[in-house]
Design a protein around this nucleic acid. Structure first.
Length: 893
RNA sequence: GCGGGGGUCGCCUAGUCUGGUCAAGGGCACUGGUCUCAGAAACCAGUGGCUUAGUGCCUUCCUGGGUUCAAAUCCCAGCCCCCGCACCA
C-alpha cells in the first residue's frame, strides 16, 4: 500500500474542508501550543517528537468534543540566523552541510548569502510549514506569524514591555558579561568555540602601596589570604604599564588596563614599564601594614587579573613553589639587585587552620603531588583546587588575621571583601572562569554592560504570583514540577535586551532589542488575533497600546477607541471576543530543556499581565530523542530531518514510531526497526476491513459480548493514556491490544465468516477512532473503507458502554484453560481425547459454545465437557474432584 | 560544584507514588513451528535456571546495607547516566 499517496490525498481533503480551522463557537475550547521553533533549519525528529505529541493530543481532544485551537508561528528573534549567514559567507562547511541536510540546494545557499537573514528566516518558515503539513499536523495556519520580522508582532512585544515597565518589572542595571570585542556583543554559550559553561568570575584587587605612593594591584580570588602575604610576584619578562585608574596610579599589565576600562573604570595609560624594573621594590600590605619585596615569577600571566600577584606561600601552591625555587637561585638573584640571603629569610605565614592539613598546607599538597617546579602547571592547578576547596569549606582563620580571627573562611570572604572595598584598599575586576573563545575565533574577556535592561524576576510579589499559577497548573508528568518550583524560587534579574541580532526594539530605548527568550513569553495570546489582523488587513500602525489594552485586558471604551484609532468597532470587538474565548492556553508541550527558562518565563509574564482567569492551565514536558541511543547533534552528524523519514516511510509510521517511542521525562529513542510492528498491524486492519462483508452471523454469543466488553475496557484505558500524554501506552492499549483482541475474536469464531457482522463492524469503527490521533491518515482511509462518510478526525470519541465482567472472566478462564491443557500435553504427551469437568453452569455453557474452537486449537479428535457433579460423566481418574470455578478438571487419553 | 530527573529480564520500554495479584506487561530481536516448490510476509509457540498432569523451588529489577511475615516498589549509603545553571535558542 502506498502510504504517501493516501496521506497526500487526505491532507488535501482536510485542507479543502478546513476542518482544522478553528473559530469562535458554542463548544468548549481547547487551546494547545508547541513552542515556536527557531528558523535555522527545518523540523527534525527532535522538534518533531515534541510537536507531534501536541498534534496527537489536539486530535484526541477534538474527538472528545472540544473546539481545538492548534496554531503555529515561527521564531526569528536573535543572533544565530545572522551568524549562520556570516558563516556561509566565509564558506563554513559545517553550516553549509547543516542547511543542505534540511534540504537547501546550492542555489538556496547562494540566495541566503545574497539576500541575508530575513530571507533565510522566511525560507525556513516556509519549509517548516511544508514539513508540518506533510506530517499531517492539524494546525490552523491562518494564525501563523514570524517574530522579529512581523511588524504587527513587534507592536505586540512593545505593548508587553511597556506594560511590564509600567508595573515595575523592567529595570535598568549594569552587568558583567563574557564579551567578544570582534563581534561587539556578549558571547552566549552556544556561540563559543571554547569555554562552554564559563561565566564571569569576580576577582578582588588588593592595593599594595609602593613607597612613591603608586599602587601594585594584586588580583586574587582569596582576599582573606592577604594576612599571609610574604612578597609580591611580578613577571620580569613582560611589559607592564603605569596608568591612572580612578585617580590613582596603578602598575598593571597592559591587558589588565584594557579590561579594567571595559569594566567601567576610568583608565588612562601614562607610560610603559618592564616587569624587570619593578622587581626589588618594597610595597606595603594595606591590611597588615607589613613591608614586602617584589620578586620575579614566571607564572604571572598578564592575561589573568592584573598580572601582579600577592604571594601567600603557606596556602597557595604556585606561590610556595615559586618561592622555594627562588630561594635556591643564589647569585642569579643579583641581576635583579636582590640579596639572596634576604630571600632565604622569607618564611611562609600560616593563617588558615583546617582539619586535614598542618602548618603549611601548600607545602604538603605540593609534596604529595610531587610538584617540583612552577612549570608543572597542570599539577599546580590541581593542587590549588584541592587546597582551595578544603580551606574554603572547612578553614578557620588563625589569630593573626586581625578582626577576622577565629571565623570560617566561607563566612568571612564576602564580608571582608565588602569592608576592604569600603576602606578603598581593594577593588573588583572580572575574568572569565575559564578561557573563552568566540565562534569568530577571538578570545573573550569580561565586559560590564552599562545601562542594561533587566526583567526583575527577583521581585517577591511577582514570584508569589508565579508560584500560585504553578500550583494550580497541571504539569505532565508530575516529576517535572519540582524543577519549576526551584526555578521560580531561584530566578534572579535577567537581561532582557541586547544591541545586536534581530528583534523588536525596546519602545522607550530604541538602541536595545528585546532578546529571544524575553520576547517569546506571551505570544500565544497573539495567535487569537493574528487571523483577524491578516484577514482585515489591519496596518501595524493602528495596533497601539490602547488597542492591545482593550483586546487583551478589556480596558478602555470601545466607541472612543474605535474613533481614536480609526478601526472598526466590530473588528476590535471580534478580537476581544477571540481572545476571551480561546485564552488561556490549556496545554503547552515542550522539551525538558525549556523548563528552567522559557516555560518558567512563560508563567512569570502571564501572571504579570493577566488576571488568574487567563493564566496557563497545563504544561506538558518530554525528553529528547536519541538516535539509536545516541544524543543528536550537529557535530555527530546524526540529525535526522523529519522530511527524510516521511519520504521513506510515510507520515503515519513516522508519527507513531516517534510519538510512541517513550513516555515521561526519559529520552525517547528513534529505532527504525520498530516500524515493522506498526506496519504489519496496519495491514491486518486493512485486511480485516476488506473481508468484513464475509461476516454473516447475526445472533449474539458470549464471544461477541466478550469482544465488545474488552474493547470497552481498552477504550477507557486508552482515553486515560491519551489524557496524560502517554502515547506509548495509548498505542499499546488502543492499537496493539485491541488488534490482538480482534484477532482472538476471529480465531475463536473459526474464521471471519462466523463472526457477528454488526459487532465486528462496531468494534472496528471504535478502533479506527482510537488510533486516529496517532495514525490520522490511515485512520481516514480505514474510515472510508468502512463506508463511513466524513472525517474520522472530526468524529467523536467512542461512547462508553456497559462492560460484562462475567463474560470477560469466563473468557479469561478459557484462555488459562488452554494454557493448562497445553501444559499437560507437554508433560503427558499428545492424546486423542480430552475431557473437561467444570464446576458451574455458566462455565459449561461458555465452554460448550467454544467447543469446536478448543478441539481445533488443542488438536484433539474428541473433546467433551461435563459438569463436575454430573453422575454420568466419564472420569476414570476422578479429575472432576480437581475442578474449581475458573479451573476445570482435565483428563486426557 | 549546585539544582532537577533517572538506572528493570539481549535491546527499547511499562510497573515504583498506593509493598503481596510480579520471574515482572508490551515492542524489537532471536529460536522453533504452521503455511509455501522456495523465500518473504502473516500466524502460533518459546526466550533466567531446575523441576511438574495443569506445579513447585532457586537466583533476578545499578551496587551495598536496612525496615517488613513479604521489597523492582519503602529507608540509608555509594556508583553511573540525562537535563539545567542565564543574557542563549
Amino acid at each position: 500500500m502506498d502510504f504517501k499517496k493516501v496521506e497526500r490525498k487526505w491532507q488535501k481533503k482536510w485542507e479543502k474542508a478546513k476542518i482544522f480551522e478553528c473559530n469562535l463557537s458554542e463548544k468548549p475550547k481547547f487551546f494547545i501550543t508547541f513552542p515556536i521553533p527557531y528558523l535555522n533549519g527545518s523540523m527534525h525528529i527532535g522538534s518533531g517528537f515534541t510537536a507531534l505529541r501536541c498534534d496527537c493530543y489536539a486530535r484526541f481532544k477534538r474527538l472528545k468534543g472540544f473546539n481545538v485551537l492548534f496554531p503555529q508561528a515561527f521564531h526569528a528573534t536573535g543572533e544565530p540566523i545572522l551568524g549562520a549567514v556570516e558563516r556561509l559567507k566565509k564558506g563554513d562547511k559545517l553550516q553549509e552541510e547543516t542547511f543542505k541536510l534540511y534540504g537547501a540546494t546550492e542555489k538556496d545557499l547562494e540566495n541566503f548569502k545574497k539576500y541575508g537573514a530575513e530571507y533565510v528566516a522566511k525560507f525556513w518558515a516556509k519549509r517548516f510549514k511544508e514539513d508540518m503539513k506533510l506530517a499531517g499536523f492539524s494546525i490552523d495556519w491562518r494564525r501563523s506569524f514570524l517574530t522579529a520580522l512581523d511588524e504587527h508582532f513587534n507592536k505586540f512585544v512593545e505593548w508587553q514591555y511597556n506594560l511590564l515597565r509600567k508595573k515595575g518589572y523592567v529595570k535598568k542595571g549594569t552587568h558583567p558579561v563574557i564579551y567578544c570585542p570582534n563581534c561587539k556583543s556578549p558571547t552566549g554559550d552556544h556561540d563559543r568555540l571554547i569555554g562552554e559553561g564559563e561565566s564571569p568570575l569576580e576577582f578582588i584587587i588588593i592595593k599594595f602601596y609602593l613607597e612613591n605612593g603608586e599602587i601594585l594591584p594584586c588580583a586574587t580570588l582569596r582576599p582573606e589570604t592577604v594576612y599571609g602575604v610574604t612578597n609580591i610576584w611580578v613577571n620580569p619578562s613582560i611589559d607592564y604599564v603605569k596608568a591612572l585608574v580612578n585617580e590613582e596610579v596603578w602598575v598593571l599589565s597592559k591587558e589588565a588596563a584594557f579590561k579594567l576600562k571595559e569594566q567601567l573604570k576610568k583608565v588612562l595609560v601614562i607610560e610603559e614599564i618592564s616587569g624587570f624594573e619593578i622587581i626589588g621594590k618594597v610595597a606595603e600590605n594595606p591590611v597588615t601594614k607589613s613591608k614586602v619585596l617584589v620578586l620575579p615569577a614566571e607564572f604571572c600571566d598578564p592575561k589573568i587579573g592584573t598580572g601582579i600577584v600577592m604571594s601567600v606561600p603557606a596556602h597557595a601552591p604556585y606561590d610556595y613553589i615559586a618561592l622555594i625555587e627562588l630561594q635556591t637561585y643564589g647569585e642569579e638573584l643579583k641581576k635583579y639587585g636582590l640579596d639572596p640571603e634576604k630571600i632565604k629569610e622569607i618564611k611562609s605565614i600560616s593563617i588558615i587552620k583546617t582539619k586535614d592539613f598542618g602548618e603549611i598546607p601548600a607545602k604538603e599538597v605540593c609534596e604529595k603531588l610531587g610538584i617540583k617546579s612552577q612549570k608543572e602547571k597542570e599539577k599546580l592547578e590541581e593542587a590549588t583546587q584541592l587546597l582551595y576547596k578544603e580551606e574554603f569549606h572547612s578553614g578557620i582563620l588563625k589569630e593573626n588575621c586581625g578582626e577576622y580571627s577565629g571565623l570560617k573562611v566561607s563566612e568571612v570572604k564576602e564580608r571582608l571583601t565588602r569592608e576592604f572595598i569600603k576602606r578603598k584598599i581593594a577593588d573588583l575586576m572580572y575574568e572569565p572562569s575559564g578561557k573563552v573563545v568566540c565562534r569568530c575565533g577571538t578570545e573573550n574577556y569580561v565586559k560590564i554592560l552599562e545601562k542594561q535592561w533587566f526583567l526583575k524576576y527577583s521581585d517577591k510579589k511577582w514570584k508569589e504570583l508565579a508560584k500560585k499559577c504553578l500550583k494550580k497548573a497541571k504539569i505532565i508528568p508530575e516529576e517535572a514540577r519540582a524543577q519549576f518550583e526551584v526555578t521560580i524560587e531561584f530566578l534572579k534579574e535577567k537581561a532582557c535586551a541586547r544591541k545586536t541580532g534581530l528583534g523588536t526594539n525596546l519602545p522607550w530605548d530604541k538602541e536595545w532589542k528585546v532578546e529571544t527568550l524575553s520576547d517569546s513569553t506571551i505570544y500565544m495570546a497573539f495567535y487569537t488575533i493574528a487571523k483577524i489582523i491578516k484577514e482585515k488587513k489591519i496596518p501595524a500602525s493602528k495596533l497601539t497600546n490602547e488597542v492591545f489594552d482593550y483586546i487583551f485586558l478589556g480596558k478602555g471604551d470601545l466607541k472612543e477607541l474605535s474613533k481614536k484609532v480609526k478601526l472598526n468597532k466590530m473588528i476590535l470587538e471580534e478580537m476581544r471576543k477571540e481572545f476571551e474565548y480561546f485564552y488561556p492556553v490549556d496545554l503547552r508541550n515542550s522539551g525538558k530543556d525549556l523548563v528552567p527558562n522559557h516555560l518558567t518565563f512563560y508563567i512569570f509574564h502571564h501572571v504579570a499581565i493577566w488576571k488568574e482567569k487567563f493564566w496557563p492551565k497545563g504544561i506538558g514536558i518530554n525528553g529528547f530523542v536519541n538516535v539509536y541511543g545516541d544524543k543528536m547533534s550537529k557535530s555527530k552528524g546524526n540529525i535526522i530531518p523529519l522530511r527524510d523519514l516521511i519520504n521513506k516511510y510515510g507520515s503515519d509510521l513516522v508519527r507513531i514510531n516517534l510519538v510512541a517511542s517513550n513516555e515521561g521525562l526519559n529520552d525517547a529513542n528513534w529505532r527504525e526497526e520498530s516500524i515493522v510492528a506498526y506496519s504489519s498491524r496496519i495491514s491486518f486492519l486493512f485486511d480485516i476491513i476488506k473481508k468484513i462483508k464475509n461476516a454473516k452471523r447475526e445472533d449474539v454469543k458470549n464471544i461477541d459480548i466478550y469482544l465488545k466488553s474488552k474493547i470497552q475496557e481498552l477504550v477507557r484505558e486508552t482515553e486515560k493514556n491519551y489524557e496524560e500524554l502517554k502515547f506509548r501506552s495509548a498505542a499499546k492499549t488502543g492499537f496493539f491490544d485491541s488488534l490482538k483482541e480482534i484477532k482472538w475474536y476471529v480465531e475463536r469464531n473459526g474464521g471471519i465468516e462466523n463472526c457477528n457482522k454488526k459487532i465486528l463492524r462496531e468494534v472496528l469503527e471504535i478502533v479506527v477512532k482510537m488510533i486516529s490521533p496517532l495514525l490520522p491518515h490511515i485512520a481516514e482511509e480505514l474510515w472510508s473503507c468502512l463506508g463511513k462518510k466524513g472525517f474520522v478526525s472530526v468524529s467523536t470519541w467512542p461512547r462508553p458502554e456497559k462492560v460484562d465482567k462475567k463474560v470477560l472472566e469466563l473468557e479469561e478462564n478459557l484462555k488459562n484453560l488452554i494454557e493448562d491443557v497445553k501444559n499437560v500435553i507437554k508433560i503427558a504427551g499428545k492424546k486423542k481425547k480430552c475431557y473437561l469437568y467444570v464446576s458451574s453452569k455458566s462455565e459449561l455453557e461458555h465452554l460448550n459454545e467454544a467447543r469446536d474452537f478448543l478441539k481445533n486449537v488443542l488438536g484433539f479428535e474428541e473433546l467433551t465437557i461435563f459438569k463436575a457433579s454430573d453422575k454420568k460423566r466419564y472420569d476414570p481418574q476422578n479429575k472432576a474432584s480437581k475442578a474449581k470455578y475458573g479451573k476445570p478438571g482435565i483428563y486426557l487419553e
